[in-house]
Structures are given as structure tokens and as C-alpha cells.
Nucleic acid binder design. Structure first.
Length: 421
RNA sequence: GGAGAGGUGGCCGAGUGGUUGAAGGCGUUAGUCUCGAAAACUAAUAUGGGCGUAAGUCCAUCGAGGGUUCGAAUCCCCCCCUCUCCGCCA
């Protein structure tokens, strides 16, 4: 959520940001409501001030045993006016709040303007040579042959997009998670294991609601949401709190399953592990000083990249253009791993800065020791990494000519075997 | 799920209709003292909003939201949360 003051004072800039992101521009309505609101506030506060001093007089009179009936009867009308104004104000505040939630975050100046994925900027591509003496198969063929993933029983037990991982592949998944968490730990991230269902306020805090309700599974009876990413519970950890400035930056890592309805996304992209309704992910979340957040975005990105490098997977980094980056971010990098078996790039991480867009919603602040003022922290997060597509790339990249899967070097210490098959 | 108790500032805690935005304590910050530190003493110390160039001023806020009243931390309604006991349970 943007500050109404920013919208009021930097309307042109905000409007340009909305346009760049192809979002709906409600600024005129917002500014109009804001003006009406302030007019009413002026009137009602004048009345309240009157009331307060009258009440003080009543108190004085009563204490000295005199009658205050005159004042009291006069104040009756004031009371009714105040109630009317307050009622109006309540309606306006609610409407204004709703409209403010429709204003997207403003892209950072370093972000390329664009509408389509083609306009994202490739800022890095690894030069690993992936030449192989034989033709690499897509991961689902290998997994089927070695009986490592059971999609059919997953469909029977739950539904499409909820596979079972079997035997050594289940162990490899666990090993990868450990590798990711251990790496984060070495880089100073504090590991936390959060709840995987959240309440409405939390979903609202990180921006899943309103706007993206359809993304999440709901537990209607208890008014809870299954998390689409650990970002939601972890970012909300400090909701409505004041963080000690000296503790910043705070860095968390969290492993969770993630649940996404992915309504309406069917077709060839959903083959194998490419797109699931439930998947594992290790997420990194940072709370930082405002002036440090872009620096922290770069280290966040390189922390995620490091994992791909150590797994010796080919990947590239995209700087997302304004139209392709999402509602809440100011700047976002996507990491895509190369799937040699499928001959295409798969997104395995996205690292974003939200500046104070989320922290304003979540009310997470710190006291600036120089100005002595309260300020909102900046929040950032990034996947490091999402498991299924990494798994797909590993299976494909590490397949042997006779149809087995080698275990990547960095993972071997986590497993009692170094080949599957 | 049932019964009871409770939710007050960064923290603890007083306060049951009228200068209570809120006593007192702790903490924090600054100053005095000290070679320095500690202790002691002195002072300052909520957030958000409206108007204003500013100084300032007004309004709101005692878990959230409604209500009663000239006036609510205090009374009523509803919701949320915490604790204790019982029940259920890995």
C-alpha cells in the first residue's frame, strides 16, 4: 500500500508507475475522496473540540454543585452532528482504504519499462557447457522408468498436481532442502519453521488479499489460508511491531510446502514437475533499513544464485520489466534454470524488493536513531530455491546414458548413496 | 467444546463515569559527578491524523469494532486473543 501523502504529493510519478505496470488507475477517485475526507475531518474536529471544552465546564459546574443543564441541552445537538459526520467519515475511510489497496507499488528507476515477458532484461547467463554425448531425456521419462514419482496415485489420493515422491527421490528432495537451509545459515539467515496456514490479516499484509485470492486454497470453516509461499507467515512475523534499529537487517530462511491453486493454468507447461499445486520451497526473507534495501536485493539474488552454481546447473537471471513484475514489487529478478531435457528455461526463484509497500500494510516499523522518527522497514524476499524445477533440472542434467541419476557433488554428504537407479 | 480469570505506553503496573494521554516503577536518551565506568542525582521520553512555511494548535487512540452519555480506560453489546481448570487428542 502506498501512503496517501505520496499519492497526493507525487501524483504524476505514481500515475506513471501505474501505467508502466498496466494496472487500473483510480487516482482521481482517490484524490477526490481524500479531499472530501479532510473537509469532513475539519468540521467534525471543530465540533469535538467544542464538545470537549463544554464537557470540562460541566465537570467543573457539577463539582461545585451548580446546574449544568443549559450546556448539556445545548450539547445535545452537537452530539448528533458529530455522530452524523463520524458516520460519513466511516464510509469514506472504508472506500478510501479499498481504493488505496488497488494502487500498485511504483517500479524502481532501474527497472526496464515493458509489457511482455520478452521485454525482461537478461542480466546474466551462466556459461556452463552442457554438451552431452547422448540425448538427454525429460525428467518425467527418467522418473517414470525408475519409479521415482507417482503422479497417478497422487491424483487418486488428492488430485492432479499432487504427486508422491518415492524412495530415493524423496530422500534427494530432503537432502536438497537441507543443502539450501545449511547454505542460508552459513550466510547469516536465521532458520525458522513457520505455520503453513495463515489468517486473513496475514494474507492481506503481504498482498495476497485482495486481488490474488484465487491463488490460495482456503480453509473456510476456520477462515484460514494455506500459504502459497513462506513469504506470507515469515513476513508477518513482525506485523504490528517496532523492530530495534540495531537489529536490522534481519534475515530469515524458511522451508515450507507451498500450495497454489493455479486456477486456469493447464496445458503443456504442467507436464511432470513443471507446475504443481503443492511444492516445497526454501524462502529467504529480509527486513532492512530503507537505504540498504537495494544493496540487500543484490546479495539476496547472489545467495540464491550460489545454490545453482554449486549444483552446477545452467541458469540465467532476468530483471523483470515493469509490466511483468507484479503488483507489490518495486524491482524483481527471476532466476531460471535450464532444462536440457525439455529445452527450456524454468523459473526457480524470484527475488524482490517491496520497499515499504508490505511493511506499511503490516505496520512494521523502526525508530530512526538520527531523526528520532518512526519509519517503515523495507521487506524483501526470494526463493532459494523452489524444489520441483530444481529437481527436474537435476534429474535431467545428472542422468547417465544407462538411465540412472548421479547425485550432485554438494549433495552427496547428505545421502547414503551417490546414484539412483 | 465446557467453566472461570484477564488484555492499559518499549516493558511492568495503578486506575470502575468528569483537568487520566493516562499515577508509580523499569528501561532508554541527555546532563551533573568521575581519569573512565558504575552508583547517585536532574531532566526528557507514545503513536497516528487535521490545519499551519513554522512555532504551534486541535482531534483520535487503554485488544478490535459498535453503542449508552453533555462527557467512557471505566457502563452495555459483539468479535479477537492470552491464562487456569475440565474434556478431547499426536
Amino acid at each position: 500500500m502506498l501512503d496517501i501523502k505520496t499519492i497526493r504529493e507525487e501524483t504524476v510519478k505514481v500515475r506513471a508507475g501505474i501505467k508502466a505496470k498496466n494496472e487500473v488507475d483510480n487516482l482521481n477517485e482517490i484524490l477526490e475522496l481524500d479531499e472530501t475526507r479532510r473537509k469532513i475531518i475539519q468540521q467534525v474536529e471543530k465540533l469535538k473540540s467544542e464538545r470537549n471544552s463544554a464537557s470540562a465546564q460541566v465537570a467543573k459546574l457539577k463539582q461545585s454543585g451548580e446546574s449544568a443543564d443549559d450546556i448539556i441541552s445545548k450539547m445535545n445537538n452537537v452530539k448528533i452532528s458529530i455522530q452524523e459526520f463520524d458516520g460519513e467519515l466511516r464510509v469514506i475511510d472504508k472506500k478510501l482504504e479499498e481504493l488505496l489497496l488497488t494502487v500498485p507499488n511504483i517500479p524502481h528507476e532501474s527497472v526496464p519499462i515493458g509489457n511482455s515477458p520478452e521485454e525482461n532484461k537478461i542480466v546474466f547467463e551462466s556459461k556452463i557447457n552442457l554438451e552431452s554425448k547422448f540425448t538427454l531425456k525429460p525428467h518425467w521419462e527418467i522418473a517414470e522408468k525408475l519409479n521415482l514419482i507417482d503422479f497417478e496415485r497422487g491424483s487418486k489420493v488428492t488430485g492432479a498436481g499432487f504427486p508422491f515422491y518415492l524412495s530415493k527421490l524423496a530422500m534427494l528432495q530432503r537432502a536438497l532442502i537441507n543443502f539450501f537451509l545449511d547454505s542460508a545459515n552459513l550466510k547469516g539467515y536465521q532458520e525458522i519453521l513457520p505455520p503453513i496456514v495463515v489468517n486473513e490479516a496475514s494474507a492481506r499484509g503481504t498482498g495476497q488479499i485482495p486481488d490474488k485470492e484465487d491463488l490460495m486454497y482456503t480453509v473456510e470453516r476456520d477462515e484460514l489460508y494455506l500459504i502459497p509461499t513462506a513469504e506470507v507467515p515469515v513476513s508477518n512475523f513482525y506485523r504490528d511491531e517496532i523492530i530495534d534499529e540495531k537489529k536490522l537487517p534481519i534475515k530469515f530462511s524458511a522451508y515450507t510446502p507451498c500450495f497454489r491453486r493455479e486456477a486456469g493454468s493447464y496445458g503443456k507447461d504442467v507436464r511432470g514437475l513443471n507446475r504443481l499445486h503443492q511444492f516445497d520451497k526454501v524462502e529467504l526473507v529480509k527486513f532492512t533499513l530503507p537505504e540498504k534495501s537495494y544493496e540487500e536485493l543484490e546479495t539476496l539474488r547472489s545467495d540464491a544464485e550460489d545454490l545453482l552454481n554449486k549444483l552446477r546447473l545452467k541458469y540465467r537471471v532476468l530483471l523483470m520489466c515493469t509490466g511483468d513484475m507484479g503488483f507489490t514489487q518495486t524491482k524483481k529478478y527471476d532466476l531460471e534454470v535450464w532444462s536440457q531435457g525439455q529445452q527450456k528455461w524454468l523459473e526457480v526463484s524470484s527475488c524482490s524488493n517491496f520497499e515499504n509497500f508490505q511493511s506499511r500494510r503490516m505496520n512494521i516499523r523502526f525508530r530512526n536513531s538520527i531523526t528520532q522518527k518512526m519509519e517503515f522497514v523495507h521487506t524483501l524476499n526470494g526463493s532459494a530455491l523452489a524444489l520441483p524445477r530444481v529437481m527436474a533440472a537435476v534429474i535431467e542434467q545428472y542422468q547417465t546414458e544407462d538411465g540412472k541419476i548421479k547425485i550432485p557433488d554438494v549433495i552427496q554428504k547428505y545421502l547414503p548413496f551417490n546414484i539412483i537407479g
